[in-house]
């Protein structure tokens, strides 16, 4: 039988599956709490409060 066996898939899921999810979560947390991003986020959340004047040319 060629191709991926069930056991191979299980092994990949149980090892790399775990690691890449942890790596992604670290990436997300770093992005979220990166001090340099603070200003952009503050701007973004306030900016929507006044957006009815039409598209900016």
């Amino acid at each position: 039988m060629t191709g991926l066996e069930h056991e191979t898939l299980v092994a990949i899921a149980k090892s790399w599956g775990l690691f890449y999810l942890i790596a992604l979560s670290i990436g997300v947390l770093a992005y979220t709490f990166w001090p340099g991003n603070r200003k952009r986020f503050e701007h973004a959340k306030n900016s929507i409060m006044n957006d009815e004047s039409g598209p900016w040319e």
Partner: peptide
Amino acid sequence: LPKRAGRPIYSYRMSIIGFWGITF
């Protein structure tokens, strides 16, 4: 909700973490 309440979202960072949590 922020628009109608006239208040920006409580925590923008929480919304990002929540987003990736939900998608993952």
